[in-house]
């Protein structure tokens, strides 16, 4: 029979790079917010630049991500219907609320951080710059109830980062996406992987945004831990699904993008940097961010191309 008979096969890729980038950006947003808010909440004399970078990055990333998501809709202008028609059984429906609240909180938090910077700048003339910033942010935190926003936002940031994993893992008919934790049926795997990746990429992006800073050792150490966990998770994934998912064009994306660029190289760079007290934030964090994007693309495409 001629191949054309009965119309060709449909394009198996339903969610393309727009959705992959959206999932990546949502992860960045969650991770960045957590970096900023946890610094803000738990670290005395927290790094103001880190807080500011994370606080500003989070809303930008999530809004750009949501923009891509809306653009990818069949009817972009009808996105508001997602809010008025709810299906509690649908991960996406729940996710809509988590992300919406997170977006609002991240904007509010960014605003609070931004206003405190302005307050700070007024006293800049009198006092030294670095000391002043810390004081200013601290002052604003107590004044504006920023702690509450940071705390609530952190919860929803966690939800957002995890949600991106749940979104895919809930597709029970997609054997790759719905892969569960080895030995524990019912506990999906992707939310863990995406959460760790979100924290890692969010932290990395925040550090990139923070620019040169005093002492980032603690962040670098956390990053190393996250990368190691992620390596373990990716290894588990590789071992628990069929080899076909890592074949073809996606083999390059996986081994080069996810494994080499995203995990091995930054790990080596970070270890080297920390041990030698060298500032390798820029190359290391850039690689982590690129790797995070590669991971989302890989997961989104692999699940659809191989069924």
């Amino acid at each position: 029979m001629d191949i054309t008979w009965g119309a060709g096969a449909a394009n198996p890729v339903i969610w393309g790079w727009l959705i992959a980038v959206y999932l990546f950006l949502a992860g960045i947003a969650g991770g960045a917010f957590l970096t900023a808010s946890l610094t803000d909440l738990f670290k005395k004399n927290g790094q103001a630049r880190v807080i500011r970078s994370g606080a500003f990055l989070a809303p930008v990333a999530i809004i750009v991500g949501l923009g891509l998501l809306v653009f990818d809709l069949g009817r972009p202008l009808s996105f508001w219907k997602l809010i008025f028609n709810v299906n509690f059984g649908s991960v996406m429906s729940i996710g809509v609320f988590i992300i919406s609240i997170f977006t609002v909180l991240s904007l509010l938090y960014a605003y609070l951080v931004w206003t405190s910077v302005k307050v700070g700048s007024k006293v800049q003339v009198r006092v030294g710059r670095a000391a002043n910033e810390t004081a200013a942010t601290k002052a604003a935190g107590t004044v504006g109830g920023r702690g509450i926003v940071a705390f609530l936002g952190a919860l929803f940031a966690l939800g957002t980062a995890t949600y991106t994993g749940f979104l895919l893992s809930a597709v029970s008919t997609n054997v790759f996406w719905s892969t569960h934790l080895p030995g524990i049926a019912g506990v999906p795997f992707l939310p863990f992987l995406f959460l760790v990746s979100a924290l890692s990429t969010g932290l990395a992006a925040t550090l990139l945004g923070a620019g040169t800073c005093d002492d980032l050792t603690v962040y670098k150490k956390i990053d190393i831990v996250l990368i190691v966990i992620e390596i373990l998770l990716v290894a588990v994934l590789y071992a628990s699904v069929r080899a076909v998912f890592f074949s073809g064009n996606l083999a390059a994306l996986f081994w080069l993008g996810v494994v080499m660029i995203g995990l091995i190289l930054p790990l080596l760079l970070s270890l080297y940097g920390v041990s030698r007290h060298k500032n390798l934030v820029l190359p290391s964090c850039s690689l982590v961010v690129i790797g995070g994007l590669a991971l989302r693309c890989f997961v989104v495409y692999a699940g659809q191309l191989f069924k």
Binding site: D2, I3, T4, W5, G6, A7
Partner: peptide
């Protein structure tokens, strides 16, 4: 034409 546009 859409159903079959070419032969082999």
């Amino acid at each position: 034409h859409e159903l079959m546009s070419e032969n082999t």
